[in-house]
Design a protein around this nucleic acid. Sequence first.
DNA 1: AGCCTGACTTTGT
DNA 2: GACAAAGCCAGGC
Length: 128
Amino acid sequence: MFVTKSMPLMNSLQAHDKDVSFFDLVYQIVRLIPAGRVTSYGAIARYLGTGRSARMVGWAMNNAHTVLPEIPAHRVVNRNGLLSGRAHFKPPESMEQKLVEEGVFIKDNQVQFFNDVFWDPATELKIN
DNA sequence: AGCCTGACTTTGT
DNA sequence: GACAAAGCCAGGC
């Protein structure tokens, strides 16, 4: 398991205390990202306490389209605001399209006004 | 049990 | 700014 003390949401996330996998935790956090906002792989990794495993977050997204409820995977970009995961959408343009529909400005596969749109779980999900 | 692969990030040139 | 290298670690083979 990947449970750490620095996980304010663990209680609610673990509601069904079965075996909560790293993937599940990633998915649940991604589902909390509000429309029109984005976060990064690293931000999610840090929030989960596995700060240097951003790649695992991205890797978890590979199966994102296979689980329900649906996961707004298009709201996860890299730390520079680049739509690095676009190639995994079908079609690839749908990632940008979905973000645009939510009011996010995209230029050259990069989120504009990134700092304003960025949603950091570590600060947004601070202790209730 | 090893070896390889990343929807990544940080650090150092 | 660009670029390279290294750390990361679960799955698949």
